[in-house]
Every structure is written in structure tokens, then in C-alpha cells.
């Protein structure tokens, strides 16, 4: 099974560390990826605010490209979309193309104008789902060479990875990432904010609202003695990491938490060198919480 990798726009800029670490982990686990040819932007949440049918068409073009690439073993082509927004939008489009005749008719006509068709074969998957449910958590556990003992992880799923078109975990209290980090030797911190929205692009538009959402997440993770937040979405990672200092200044907080991608964390446990995991691209690399003190992980990786 080769997954059709759909990076999405963010993984080519702010989310580069996500792309690099994801690819490194897939290489390590020998999960074959093939980048979807000439993929286009999924449309995110903004496109549908202007024109819904066009938004569906935009996303459906990607599904249509994959649609023509059935697997050698006859199974359905699977798109691997690491960004929560891409994942949700592509999954939603697939859902509506299957279940809503009107959407299907309009979008098919539009695709046809550009010489494409979508027959509904494509499955949309998130790496979290693929690693844990396809590859298998036990197999991952067996490949761990640096158990990440001492890490207290606040698993932050964000919103769109588990709802409403996703089926691999509970939409309010998911556990997939928690189970994964436990298998990597770390401890997952139980907190009630794991799917509470980071505000998405509000940090760039209505900053007060966006900052307060992130502040609540960061404060609560700190309070529960997490020493790292892991995310599975480029926008969540950006918001939680990049605005920490400004949140501290604005609200008089003293938050100081590394925010990394779960793929980087996996890579460290699997013994992949920090550089390949783009640890250096984080503002604040995850610190080894081992008794030795503030030894940076990539020093021994």
C-alpha cells in the first residue's frame, strides 16, 4: 500500500518541520509515500466562505487525481493528509460527493470542464490514524530505541482531525495520540482541552480572541505539569508555539512550553537524528526531562 501524500500549503512553509519529520518517520517505518501529482490547495475553511461549490470542486480535484491511481493490490487509493484542515476538507468533500446527489452533480460537471472525473474511490487518511491503526501501535513500540521516559506529554489533537467526517476516534475525547506516546515510553497527561480549538487563523485576524484560546491551552498544559505539547496540525503548532512570548507579555503569564509535531516525537523515539526531524526548526526544542537536567534531545540523538 502506497499512500498518496498530500502536503498541503502549510507543510511547505510554516509547517516544514512537520513535513520533514513525517517523511523521515515514514522512511524509517518503511511506509511508502508518493506525493500526489500536481496537488492543489484544499480550500481550507476560507474558500467555502465565498463559494461552496467551488470549494468542493477545488478539493475534489485532488480526490480525482488520486481516483485514477488504484493500488496494485486492487485496494482503494488513499490520500495521506497531515494537516488537520486539509484532512477535514478532503474527507468532507468525499463525504458529500458520496451522499449528496446535488453536490455530486455540480462538482462532477465542474471537474469535467477541466478534463477530470471523480468516481468516489479515494479514501482520506490522517497520519495519526495510519501510524496507529494501519501500521500498528505494537509494531511501533517494538521499534522504539530511545524510550522517551520523563516526558509528560499534553496531546493536542486540535479540532478537525476527529470531527465530524473522521471515524477513527471519539470527536471530543480522542485517545489515539495518547496511546501512541505511551507506546513511545512517554507519559500522556490527561487534560480536557485536547480537542478545544486553537482559534485557527483568528490569531492573525481577531488577535485577542485567538490569543486567549491559546493562552487557556498553554496554561492548562503547564498547570498539569506537561513538559511538552504535541500537535498533529501545522496551524495548531504555529499558534501554540509562535505566540507564547506575546501571550506572556499581554497577559502576564510565564508560559514556556515546547510545542512539537507528534511525528518529531515519534522520530526521536525511533532513533532518527534530530536534524532529519527538523528539531532545529522549532523555536524551542523539546528538552530532555531526564534528571541530568536541561540536556537537549538532539545532543544524544
Amino acid at each position: 500500500m502506497t499512500y498518496l501524500y498530500f502536503p498541503g500549503c502549510s507543510l511547505r512553509s510554516t509547517g516544514r518541520a512537520y513535513e520533514e519529520s513525517l517523511l523521515a518517520v515514514c522512511r524509517k517505518l518503511e511506509i511508502p509515500l508518493h506525493e500526489l501529482d500536481d496537488w492543489n490547495c484544499c480550500g481550507a475553511t476560507a474558500y467555502v466562505s465565498i463559494d461552496e461549490t467551488r470549494a468542493f470542486t477545488l478539493a475534489a480535484r485532488n480526490l480525482a487525481i488520486a481516483d485514477h491511481l488504484p493500488q496494485p493490490d486492487g485496494s482503494d487509493p488513499q490520500i495521506l493528509a497531515p494537516c488537520n484542515a486539509c484532512y477535514m476538507v478532503l474527507a468532507k468533500t468525499h463525504h458529500f460527493m458520496e451522499s449528496n446527489a446535488e453536490v455530486r452533480a455540480h462538482v462532477s460537471t465542474a471537474l469535467h470542464a477541466g478534463g477530470m472525473t471523480y468516481t468516489g474511490q479515494t479514501r482520506v487518511r490522517h497520519p495519526l490514524d495510519v501510524f496507529v491503526n494501519d501500521f500498528g501501535i505494537d509494531r511501533i513500540a517494538k521499534k522504539v530505541v530511545h524510550p522517551l521516559k520523563g516526558f509528560r506529554v499534553a496531546c493536542y489533537y486540535g479540532c478537525q482531525v476527529v470531527r465530524p467526517f473522521s471515524e477513527f476516534d471519539h470527536p471530543v475525547y480522542p485517545m489515539t495520540m495518547d496511546r501512541l506516546v505511551t507506546a513511545l515510553g512517554a507519559e500522556s497527561v490527561d487534560w480536557p482541552m485536547k480537542t478545544r480549538c486553537c482559534g485557527g487563523s483568528l490569531t492573525g485576524t481577531i488577535q485577542e480572541a485567538g490569543f486567549r484560546l491559546n493562552r487557556a491551552l498553554l496554561k492548562e498544559a503547564t498547570k498539569r505539569k506537561a513538559n511538552i505539547i504535541l500537535t498533529c496540525c501545522p496551524l495548531c503548532q504555529h499558534n501554540l508555539e509562535c505566540y507564547q512570548q506575546r501571550i506572556n507579555r499581554r497577559y502576564g503569564e510565564t508560559i514556556n512550553l515546547p510545542v512539537a509535531y507528534f511525528t518529531q516525537f515519534m522520530g526521536l523515539a525511533l532513533g532518527i537524528p534530530a536534524k532529519e526531524l527538523a528539531i532545529q526548526r522549532l523555536f524551542k526544542p523539546p528538552l530532555s526531562p531526564a534528571p541530568a537536567g536541561k540536556q537537549e534531545i538532539h545532543a544524544h540523538a
Binding site: 479540532c159 470531527r163 465530524p164 480549538c197 485557527g200 481577531i206 480572541a209
Partner: peptide
């Protein structure tokens, strides 16, 4: 202000 987090919907 809706950030499309879908929590209301689920």
C-alpha cells in the same frame, strides 16, 4: 468568529 472547529456540530 466561527473558527469551523465543528464542536457544536458533533
Amino acid at each position: 468568529l466561527c473558527a469551523s472547529c465543528y464542536s457544536c456540530q458533533v
